[in-house]
């Protein structure tokens, strides 16, 4: 496959996944902000939301305060914010446009339609009282595009690079959510118990569609440690780090190629550590330290994917 095609496919999927994750985080943050007793300071949750995305500086330069309205405007609709849902959907569509010939017409039409609809919503604005219907819509469009990929694409490298983008972005996102929620909402792992826990952790689980799964898996109280275990190590959780790296590792092995040696080695190492890791070890080491290192390592892997498949300099 052409390097440039693979590059577009990968970013098409990443952009769509990013739009979905941003919608998920905005939705759950909005719900959490309604729990007055949980707020240590005004706009606490919204600040946390901004630091998850690493966009707080950009935000502060242009908005007076991190109110619900401002952050939703910034993260959902702001044309100047490269990480907004608006720009993620635009990116997904532009990347799809560049490789129209390589994907099915259903795939292109779905992404094109999503973008046209996004532009309309952008003009009208999100209704007051939170953007839940809008966030639901973003999630549905993301589900749809993944479903179309599954239902219509030949299982060749086109499909693999798409999936690679999806799981890479998802791993990055799950790690960020966990890190920030732990760090900001609950500095110490011993601060457990009480109704606040139920709501805070419940909201976090809901943001990654894991609330019901938690109940099924643990059949017990929600505790921070188990939440961490579920979202880091459980191979049956579709958004856990282990699941994401399982997929990334398998996809990279299938794509392979003459220059993939170092990439496969490093990916296999990270994958192995997750697969055979234990939550006690992770907690003993420090969850924040663990997640920061994980983010750094997948960032490096992303670079390596770039030079291995997209922008080699071997002429």
């Amino acid at each position: 496959m052409l390097s440039s095609t693979a590059d577009h496919l990968y970013w098409m999927a990443r952009s769509m996944e990013r739009a979905e994750n941003t919608a998920r985080m905005l939705d759950v943050t909005y719900r959490m902000s309604l729990l007055k007793h949980a707020a240590a300071e005004p706009h606490h949750e919204w600040r946390a939301m901004l630091s998850i995305s690493g966009l707080h500086e950009d935000f502060e330069a242009r908005y007076p305060e991190p109110s619900a309205e401002n952050v939703v405007q910034f993260m959902a609709l702001d044309e100047k914010n490269p990480g907004s849902i608006y720009n993620s959907l635009f990116g997904a569509r532009e990347n799809a446009r560049a490789v129209r010939g390589s994907v099915t017409s259903e795939m292109w039409e779905a992404l094109n339609h999503t973008w046209l609809e996004m532009r309309r919503i952008h003009g009208e604005g999100i209704a007051e009282g939170g953007g839940s219907p809008f966030f639901e819509w973003v999630k549905e469009r993301s589900h749809l595009s993944r479903g179309i990929a599954h239902g219509t694409l030949l299982r060749d490298d086109t499909f693999r690079f798409l999936r690679l983008g999806t799981f890479f972005e998802r791993a990055d996102n799950t790690a960020r959510i966990l890190d920030v929620k732990y760090h900001i909402l609950l500095p110490s792992l011993s601060d457990i118990g009480g109704a606040a826990d139920y709501y805070q952790w419940g909201a976090l689980l809901r943001s990654v569609s894991a609330f019901e799964s938690y109940r099924k898996v643990y059949r017990d109280l929600i505790t921070p440690k188990r939440v961490a275990e579920l979202l880091i190590l459980r191979p049956d959780m579709p958004r856990s780090l282990t699941t994401c790296m399982n997929e990334v590792n398998r996809l990279l092995q299938e794509i392979n190629g003459p220059r993939a040696g170092e990439l496969l080695r490093r990916c296999g190492l990270l994958h192995g550590e997750l697969r055979f890791g234990s939550i006690d070890d992770i907690v003993a080491r420090g969850l924040h330290e663990y997640l920061s290192e994980f983010l750094e390592r997948i960032y490096d892997l992303g670079d390596l994917i770039n030079t291995t498949y997209f922008w080699s300099t071997d002429e």
Binding site: M1, S3, S4, A6, D157, F161, I255, G257, F310, S312
Partner: peptide, 9 residues
């Protein structure tokens, strides 16, 4: 002439 592909030139 070569094209850049994910599997090399």
């Amino acid at each position: 002439v070569f094209m850049r592909t994910t599997q090399g030139p």
